[in-house]
Design a protein around this nucleic acid. Structure first.
Lengths: 263, 263
DNA sequence: CAGTGGTCTAGACCACACT
DNA sequence: GTGTGGTCTAGACCACTGC
């Protein structure tokens, strides 16, 4: 890696193999540095909430200029993998921070903000070990029949049930997860996943639909059967686009709405 | 602006007034450059799809280094106001591009991508001049009673109606808009707004709910009355966060879904 | 005060597109 | 080849944090 920083940067990928290649697959130095930092992040060299080494230190370690490290970190910060704090350092992002808690929850009260509403009350309906169905296996990149933890819970705001959620988690990574743990933890569930299982959710994709409540759902959410509910199907990923959670939420949207910003 | 580039950058905002200020409101040079470019964009100095001057030219114009201009443009590109193309130049973003057409439409077919589906068929149900209701006035920063253009239309994919939309547009900016124009235009509606009215939508906010179809809605979308529909309420903004459109869409989500990425 | 991230500059060179 | 954006470096200085 960059033995001769001042000269043409050697392309690690291209140099690795295939001297005769149609597309040289050029990747700039800062991208290679970014990958290296990413690997350290993934390997747990620095834990969530901790500071990573200073830009100068990283520049020395990788034998590149500070500017190149800076650009690599800039991209990591843009992807919310890392948080910069002027005068203090750069920190591994975590779902435990007081600031942007519940980053992935886009349901907002129609009036006011979520802070004014107070924390949600959580009730675990069930938490059991099952075998992955074909659908769950596909979403989590498992084989059908592989062990999976399934959780069903109801979240309430101000005493009113608002969300009915089913979670499916790979059994291997979430050994020992139980209802007490799910119910006892204060704060974001993803923060618990970080602390208890070392699983950091980094990004997610959601598919949103309008559906009619069935009998069971309407009972749990205290709405009329057949009434409209927002179905939010989420796949959450760790590093390297590895899926680690499938979640299907049913949201009441009579007093709340799903907020999205487009640009 | 940066009469002495090599010395401490004079803060235009801070220098303008209030020599004794608790917070000096420091803003870096590149931010000031960004504002200047933004003003030119807004004033229409360069039209959508056109190239803006090269980084070197802008650096010379503003008497700063190329790197400072670069950082300003980087941010504009990140906000999708401008598109960089290596070897060619930097171009004013437009909704007319073949690439990311329908940037703000997040409805996707459950199987395949939107390109495979072909363009939507549009039917204008009505297009009339009305007076702003309290709700419309609030969303568009108008006064109740101000002139507004209201459009109702149905979009169909593969012959099946999928979206029922109502649009409200400020009457002043959209003088002369009529049903023929709405129906005749090929491609994104926002592209027509750029060409015909010089209005460029830059970002938008959406509030999403699940609702039950009423009699009229179910007839237009060919679903059962009371069936679930996705309600998407959008406010679209031009430069400087000026709202220029209120839109309420009702989406059928039996064969499509609203796709969102979280990070 | 020292250490961290943040800004600004200047110059060299690379990759890409057009002509 | 020329011009564009893109990368990389090196050094100076600024702003913020905490000792």
């Amino acid at each position: 890696m960059a033995q001769t920083p001042a000269s043409t940067p050697e392309n690690a990928l291209a140099a690795a193999d295939a001297p005769v290649s149609a597309t040289p697959a050029f990747s700039p130095l800062y991208q290679q540095i970014k990958v290296l930092i990413l690997q350290s992040l993934q390997a747990g060299e620095w834990k969530p909430g901790e500071a990573i080494p200073s830009e100068m230190d990283l520049a020395a370690r990788f034998r590149v200029s500070q500017g190149t490290v800076r650009k690599a970190i800039d991209e990591l910060a843009a992807e919310n993998l890392v948080v910069r704090r002027q005068g203090k350092g750069t920190f591994v992002a975590t779902h435990s921070e007081q600031q942007v808690q519940y980053r992935f929850l886009k349901l907002m009260p129609d009036a006011g903000d979520r802070a004014s509403e107070g924390p949600a009350h959580r009730e675990i309906v069930e938490c059991k070990r099952v075998r992955a169905s074909a659908e769950v296996a596909r979403a989590l990149a498992l084989r059908p029949g592989d062990p999976v933890v399934q959780v069903r819970r109801v979240l309430s705001f101000g005493g009113m049930p608002a969300i009915l959620e089913d979670l499916w988690l790979p059994g291997n990574a979430f050994k020992g997860l139980n209802a007490e743990q799910m119910a006892g933890w204060q704060g974001p569930t993803y923060a618990m996943f970080e602390v208890e299982f070392g699983v950091r959710m980094v990004r997610a994709e959601e598919k949103i639909r309008a559906v009619a409540a069935d009998a069971q759902q309407s009972a749990l959410l205290q709405v009329e059967p057949g009434g409209p509910l927002l179905s939010v199907e989420r796949v959450a990923y760790t590093y390297n686009d590895v899926p680690m959670e499938l979640r299907r939420g049913l949201y009441r949207t009579d007093t709340h709405h799903y907020r999205n910003e487009l640009s």
